[in-house]
């Protein structure tokens, strides 16, 4: 039995090796082990989307994947996407459109919005709502969030 696992992975472009407890989930690993606290922990059972992290190019629930399962993977968090300027336009537009209030949900929304725009560069408002349906905003800012994503889609297409 392995209560602790050795893992090697890439996080935001940096190679990392650690020994983790088997039960450590991915979002707790990046927050507590790597001190990347931009990914948030909300419901811890896959409902709220605050813990959204990108693994091998696709968003996942950081609370529903073990750190041990990310062994050998390429992991990207809001810090990585921020630093690489990949989502600067989304971040600016969320700001300009008042698409955040307390900001707790925002990293999750940004990663989700980025995956939507990669898959579907010209989403309708309904498609945007459907795609972000797995992310909760408790400041009830959905209208402004949809506005911001729609504006960025239009700008990227120009």
């Amino acid at each position: 039995m392995n209560d602790n696992i050795n893992i090697s992975l890439t996080v935001n472009g940096q190679k990392i090796s650690r020994n983790v407890a088997a039960r450590t989930n991915l979002v707790d690993f990046v927050r507590y082990e790597l001190e990347l606290t931009g990914s948030h922990v909300g419901c811890e059972h896959g409902v709220c989307g605050a813990c959204t992290i990108r693994v091998d190019g696709s968003i996942v629930r950081g609370c529903l994947m073990l750190a041990a399962q990310a062994d050998g993977s390429k992991v990207e968090t809001i810090e990585g996407l921020s630093d690489s300027n990949e989502i600067t336009d989304l971040q600016n537009e969320f700001h300009n459109s008042n698409a955040l209030q307390c900001g707790f949900c925002t990293p999750g929304f940004l990663l989700t919005a980025q995956e939507l725009l990669e898959n579907n560069p010209s989403p309708s408002r309904n498609e945007i709502r459907e795609f972000i349906s797995g992310n909760y905003c408790r400041c009830t800012g959905y209208q402004a969030i949809v506005d911001a994503i729609e504006k960025v889609a239009k700008k990227r297409n120009n």
């Binding site: 989307g49 996942v60 797995g134 992310n135």
Partner: peptide
């Protein structure tokens, strides 16, 4: 089925 981040796993 659930949401994109869950369908990805």
């Amino acid at each position: 089925i659930a949401h994109q981040a869950i369908r990805n796993r």
